[in-house]
Amino acid sequence: MKIVVAYAWAPDPQEASVGADGQVDFSRAKPVVSEYDAVAIEVGRQLATATSSALVGISVGGPATGTPVATKAALSRGLDEVMVASDAALADAGTTRTAQGLAAMVQRLGDVSVVLTGDSSVDSGSRMMPPVLAGLLGWPVLSDVQKVSVTADGVTVERLLREGVQQVSVTGPVVLALASDATQPKAPGMKDVLAAGKKPVTKLEVADLGPAVAEGTVVSTAKLTGPARKGIVINTADPAAAAAELVGALRAAGVIGSTGGQA
C-alpha cells in the first residue's frame, strides 16, 4: 500500500512584488514546501508508519520543482520517495491541469490508499485542487480533515466544520485535504537533511500527464487597489476623549446606533 502526499514547490505570494501593471514578480520570493503541505507530509508520515505503507510525494510545477534542492527539501520532511513533473509548460498550470498531472501520477503509482493534500496552496489559495483531483480519479474527497485513522477497508476521518465535528467513515481510496492545524509540522532534523539525497526521485515528462486541458486566455492584468481610506488620525492622548470622538464619528456616519449597538 502507498500513501501519497501532493505538494507544491512554490514561493509565498506575500514575498512577491506586484508591478503597477499587475505583473507579479516572484524573483525575490524563495520557493518552499509550504506550511500547509508540511502538515500533509507530517500526517502522511504518521499514517505511513502506523500502516507500514510507503509515503510518496507527488508534485507538478515549473522547472524549479524538479531541482535537487526542491526534491530534497520535500524528502527531508519525511517522504520515502517523490515523483515530480517539472517543466516550463507547467509553471503557470491552472488548478485543473495540475490536478490532471497529479491524477496521472497516482494512477501510475498504483496501489494508493490515500492521497493527502494541504489545506490550500499558497500560490492560488482557491482550495479547489483536491476536489478536482478526486473528480478526475473518480474517488471521494473530504476537506477540513483534523484527524485520519486507517481502518480495515479504508479510513475514518474527523472534520471540523461550521456545523460541528463530523466523523466520516470511508471505504476504498480517498483524497483528503488536511486542516492547517491538523498537526504541527516539525522542522527537518539534521539527519533528515542528509538522508534526503539518498531517497529515490522519479521524473515524469509533460507528455506523461495526458493532453493539456483548455486554460483561459489572459486578457489583461492590473494592480489591485483597495477602496480609498480616509486616514483620519484621532489623538489618543486622552483615551476617553479619543473614544468619544470615534464613537461620534461612527454614529454620524450612521453605521452604529445612537445608543450603541447596530444601527
Binding site: 518552499v32 535537487p68 534542492v69 530534497k72 527539501a73 527531508s76 516539525k186 522542522a187 527537518p188 532534523g189 539534521m190 533528515d192 537533511v193 542528509l194 534526503a196 539525497g197
Partner: peptide, 17 residues
C-alpha cells in the same frame, strides 16, 4: 551544497518556532 542550503532552512524553521 543542497544539504548546506537545506540545513540553513531547516535550522531557521526550528529556531524561529
Amino acid at each position: 551544497s543542497d544539504e548546506q542550503l537545506l540545513t540553513r532552512s531547516a535550522v531557521r524553521e526550528f529556531a524561529e518556532a
